[in-house]
Write a protein that binds this DNA or RNA. Structure first.
Length: 789
DNA sequence: GGTGCTTGTCATCCC
DNA sequence: TTGGGATGACAAGCA
């Protein structure tokens, strides 16, 4: 596949199969020639030749090192901590976007990757691809307008595969520089995820049951966040691994590892079963790109599917340690199998050889890809086979996508799961249909695991609704339905009424309610087709009344016979799907599912009633929870307000004390000033001129220039401050309601009250201070008045 | 048997 | 028009 031999071949064909580092190589042939094979890396004394640009681009370590290194220093001696076992796969990954991991090298690879700064290997690869496609689309827009990855993904969605999770995580346009160091952005996203997924701190409700409900809800949210939050991947995965220890490595759980995790690489699950090469789809992708230039039809889907199966390296290590004996081989599915480097156990020499051949003969191996296309099984097929090995292979592609997209939702549900049902792979074909709700994404949300986990709780257990039971339908009879619910059976469709685990609102069905179900509907369709071929297994979905059936019938005949026709008492509704499907499918999928079957009006009524009740049940639970939250919030607000009021009251009392002291001081100072005024009238005049009233500048001619004294008396609420010189001058302040009387004129004293009240702005030098006092007093009184009232 | 709590359901409104 | 969410009211089970 040497590009030298195929100069006309688009460069992106080559780069599309390699790691993002090679984006540097694809710019032009000249530059590529400049950077090829110019560095020798010494790993444990062994020489490994590599491209300077590749090294620099794929590793922060090399990037920094080579930046300062001259062309005359073609040898890089890696530290001892970098082993050949760990470095070789990484270098191979840099060229092929294929990371081969096994139990022997994974630790070394992780150490090397961490040391070299090769984070987000998968992400960088996806970004590379997207950037490539985007740039390519931009370049060819005038001639061909090739579909961008986003549009392809959109088309993919429009085609019905609207799995929200089946998306490349780099749907955003790549940022400049994000190709080489995408971890910055990814870390940001991770942080946001972590923040947004933080389980809120729940205030425990007062009521015991609600408290229990909230506790479980909080626990669930924590669990969910741990699953959705990258930073807590390890812990959650540990739980997962622990739970799956009994069954070995749970592939579905592995597949459901969040894709946004740092230091995560996608895992080709097929490697768990066959330690050989896969990536047929990747080859297919490459071949399409190579042979048809911009034919990317299947690429985004493959991208999406492969993105659905990432697994964290650390998680892999844990799995390796705990349960897995398989050789794990990470495969981005974006690479071809062209390079012989991709043998799982790559000897260093082989690698050198291969990678030199890779340099010189990249194009040569391309033809081999086509030959190998049919050999390898894609991630889709294999994972699907792993998950649903009983399914026929005639629709393996499509359905593998479906089930691959499904699988994570089993993980997305809280760590608890049905014992023995957590792995789809364990399902029998019958389970797949009759128990389809078990494999149903949302059904996990309603799994009565909490019941099983809390066996002491005397709640009504919810039988496996996925196994439809006979249901007596009493259409349009609320009473009857109420009996159905409250009877011993309660049952076939009621949740575990512990208010917690079985509470739909407390479980992640809302998080899962969108996309997976559409695929599930497709599954249903497929299942339906299958079962149509072998005879529709008309499942009797009939609500049983268990031991109280006689009582129930009595109750019907006693009190409820008026509310519905008698003939409906014993009417049985046979439904071809489970209760979970009725209640949990999204609207479109639900309608789609209904249209698949020919249902009678009774069946439709029953289905719609059940669905409505289910929805309303959940809504009621949410509503009550909200109500309780509101009450709690209000109580909290009240508590805060009471505390604040206490604080304000204390502050006000302190202010009163301060005000009293201020008045005393002011009065005393006024006395002093008045005495001095009496001694030196001229100074008083100058004082007036220096401190004019801000409202009426300049001394009022009617005011005597020589006030003898100012007597301020605060008469409000017994805070009376009298000056010792009442006889000399009077400045009476009555703070309440602006009853302020300031008399600075000793002569004539008889005018003081009226004149000052009518013209408060003519208070001269003391007016400023008096205004302040007035203001403060008014503030005090106005604050106190409402309290008195 | 009365009471309080919890939960499911219905009716209704609204989007 | 239909579906669904929100919510008050009611009924039943349970301790």
């Amino acid at each position: 596949m040497s590009t030298e031999e195929k100069p006309e071949a688009p460069m992106y064909v080559y780069e599309s199969t390699v790691h993002c580092a090679n984006i540097l190589l694809c710019l032009n042939e000249q530059r590529k020639q400049d950077v090829l094979c110019d560095v020798t890396v010494l790993v444990e004394g062994r020489e490994i030749r590599a491209h300077r640009a590749v090294l620099a681009a794929c590793s922060q370590y090399f990037s920094l090192l080579l930046r300062s290194q001259t062309e005359n220093e073609p040898v890089i001696n890696l530290p001892q901590k970098i082993t050949e076992k760990g470095f070789t796969p990484l270098l191979q990954f840099a060229y092929t976007a294929k990371l081969l991991l096994n139990r022997d090298n994974i630790q070394d690879v992780m150490c090397c990757a961490e040391f070299l700064g090769m984070h987000n290997l998968e992400d960088s690869c996806f970004r590379f691809l997207q950037a490539q496609m985007k740039s390519e689309a931009d370049g060819m827009q005038t001639s061909q307008n090739p579909p961008s990855p986003q549009s392809l993904v959109q088309n993919h969605h429009d085609n019905g595969l609207e799995d929200a999770n089946v998306q490349p995580n780099d749907s955003k346009p790549p940022l400049p520089g994000s190709r080489l160091h995408p971890e910055t952005e990814q870390l940001k996203v991770t942080t946001n995820l972590h923040q947004s997924d933080q389980a809120p701190a729940f205030d425990l409700p007062r009521y015991p049951k609600y408290r229990k409900y909230h506790q479980v809800l909080a626990k669930h949210n924590t669990t969910t966040s741990s699953h959705s939050s990258t930073s807590s991947l390890h812990g959650s995965l540990q739980d997962t691994v622990t739970s799956s220890d009994a069954q070995g490595l749970n592939l579905s759980k592995v597949k459901a590892e969040p894709a946004s995790g740092e230091e995560c690489v996608p895992l080709d699950l097929s490697k768990l079963e066959q330690d050989g090469l896969v990536g047929g789809k990747g080859s297919e992708m490459e071949m399409e790109m190579e042979f048809e230039g911009r034919q990317l039809s299947s690429t985004p889907i493959e991208l999406a599917v492969s993105k659905r199966s990432p697994v964290c390296l650390r998680s892999l290590v844990k799995k390796e340690v705990t349960s897995s004996d398989h050789c794990l081989t990470a495969d981005l599915q974006l690479t071809s199998r062209t390079s012989p480097l991709q043998e799982p156990q790559v000897a260093p020499n082989d690698f050198q050889k291969d990678y030199q051949a890779f340099v010189g003969g990249l194009g040569v191996t391309a033809s081999k890809t086509a030959e190998k296309l049919t050999d390898g099984m894609s991630l889709k097929s294999l994972s699907f086979e792993r998950i649903c090995s009983q399914e026929s292979e005639r629709e393996s592609d499509r359905r593998s996508v479906i089930f691959s997209s499904q699988a994570p939702y089993h993980l997305a549900a809280p760590a608890h799961s049905y014992p023995g049902e957590s792995c789809l792979g364990q399902e029998t074909p019958d389970d797949l249909w009759a128990g389809s709700s078990q494999s149903f994404p949302c059904s996990q949300a309603l799994s009565p695991t909490s019941v099983s986990q809390e066996p002491t709780l005397p709640y009504r257990r919810r039988p496996k609704s996925s196994c439809p039971v006979p249901i007596k339908m009493c259409p349009r009879s609320s009473r009857a339905e109420s009996h159905i619910r409250t009877s011993s059976s309660c049952s076939s469709y009621s949740y575990a009424e512990d208010g917690s685990g079985g509470s739909p609102s407390s479980l992640p069905q809302f998080e899962l309610s969108t996309s997976p179900c559409s695929t599930m509907a497709r599954c249903l369709a497929l299942e339906h087709q299958e079962h149509s071929m072998s005879g529709p297994p008309k499942i009797k979905c009939e609500k049983s009344y268990d031991t109280n059936s006689s009582d129930e019938s009595e109750s019907f005949s006693d009190g409820d016979s008026e509310s519905f026709p008698t003939k409906e008492h014993t009417q049985e509704v046979k439904l071809p799907f489970s209760i979970d499907q009725i209640t949990e499918l999204p609207r479109n999928d639900f309608q789609l599912m209904i249209k698949m079957y020919t249902l009678t009006s009774d069946q439709l009524d029953f289905i719609h009633n059940m669905r409505r009740r289910s929805k309303n049940r959940v809504a009621a639970q949410r509503c009550r929870k909200r109500k309780l939250d509101c009450i709690q919030n209000l109580e909290h607000e009240i508590h805060k307000l009471v505390c604040e009021r206490q604080k304000l009251l204390t502050e006000r009392s302190q202010l009163k004390i301060c005000m009293g002291e201020l008045w005393e001081n002011f009065s005393f100072l006024s006395q002093e000033v008045c005495r001095e005024e009496q001694l030196s009238p001229g100074q008083s005049q100058s004082l007036y001129n220096l401190h004019p009233d801000p409202v009426s500048p300049g001394p009022d001619p009617r005011i005597s220039p020589n006030p003898t004294s100012i007597d301020i008396t605060l008469t409000s609420h017994n805070n009376v401050v009298s000056s010792p010189g009442l006889n000399d001058c009077q400045a009476i302040v009555e703070p309440p309601h602006s009853h302020l009387r300031v008399d600075r004129e000793a002569v004539p004293p008889q005018d003081t009250v009226t004149s000052e009240r009518s013209e408060p702005s003519h208070m001269g030098s003391s007016s400023v201070t008096t205004d302040f006092c007035l203001e403060m007093t008014e503030k005090c009184t106005t604050e106190e008045l409402p309290e008195r009232n």
